[in-house]
Design a protein around this nucleic acid. Structure first.
Lengths: 175, 175
DNA sequence: AGTGCCATGTAAATCGTTACATGATTGT
DNA sequence: ACAATCATGTAACGATTTACATGGCACT
């Protein structure tokens, strides 16, 4: 849904062609988001239609295949709007990472509120997992099957703890 | 792709209707996988067609709406086959969790190999992130924008470290 | 009689994946 | 001349999401 915003951020960092973005997505942002080149070309075309991007045709000699996309003011506004927007739970963790990168280029625009919101959400979820752990997984007397199910829950707990530890580290960076 | 195997596992734990599964997916497995009821109904119908499931029509009085699905031998075989299968990178972390739950019901069928494979994969990825950190993010002299980009990378690093810590905890459970 | 939850489904629109296709540029 | 890589796109298919639709059952 917000592959567009990831692309906008990437283009703000450096104006590029679709091909370059497809390769760039193997680095940095691409560690969290993967996108095929068709997805990228489609979204670039749409954003150009919407007036968020300008396609600069590199007319080198006879051919003018390569297009370098630049973010226009409307694109900047859209990205700024999105940063402040709550974002749906489930994908908002990944979205926050893009929001941080976007703020690195655009300056502070409300991502810290998103961070606070997500901290509350993850604290609630962690507490819920811990309650389940206490209820369903006594320290002793677990058979093998139960230990396996416990391991699955442990992953959930550790993931939440880890996320919160990262948030604590990251919070001071955002005013 | 393997919403089917998540459903098979859930149905082995307890034969259920589509509606019950849709709600159950808000608990346990549903902490990691979310699926809409249409997805669930579609896959249940397919798996029943394929002979993996039997739909028991609860004919209470005049109406026979509710169907309780039971896993058939072919379904058990398919799940066993899938547990041993490598699984595509990207979704294989989540898949492993389902494989653990599946083995809790079916007994050991090769998930430990998957765990070893993923440990190697995560170690490689962690090393790559750490290399990037050393190359691009010196301990001192970072401006605000760079600190934000560093925070994004830190999330990647911490996620890998956390995953590996979990794997170390979990390894002894699997022969 | 009405509200809310149980229970299943169809249909349309959008998104994502895979395959196919084309041609330019760069280096050997 | 040839291969590799740069660069963009169309088409088909399948999956997912969202909206719509239906009706039973339980409780008050």
């Amino acid at each position: 849904m917000s592959i567009q915003h990831a692309l906008l951020t990437s283009l703000l960092e450096k104006p590029s062609s679709g091909y370059e973005l497809a390769n760039r997505f193997d680095h940095s942002i691409g560690y969290f988001w993967q996108a095929t080149h068709q997805q990228i070309y489609r979204e670039l075309a749409r954003m150009a239609d919407a007036g968020w991007l300008l396609a600069e045709h590199d007319a080198t000699g006879t051919s003018r295949r390569k297009k370098t996309y630049h973010v226009l003011e409307a694109g900047r506004r859209e990205l700024a709007r999105w940063i402040a927007e709550p974002g749906d739970p489930g994908r908002s963790d990944q979205a926050l990472l893009i929001k941080l990168r976007a703020e690195a280029v655009l300056g502070p625009l409300g991502a810290s509120q998103e961070l606070h919101r997500l901290i509350a959400l993850h604290k609630t979820r962690l507490q819920m997992y811990r309650d389940i752990e206490q209820r369903d997984f006594p320290a002793a007397d677990m058979d093998h099957a139960q230990k396996l199910r416990h391991a699955v829950l442990r992953m959930g707990i550790k993931t939440e703890e880890n996320w919160l530890a990262w948030a604590k580290e990251t919070l001071p960076l955002m005013e």
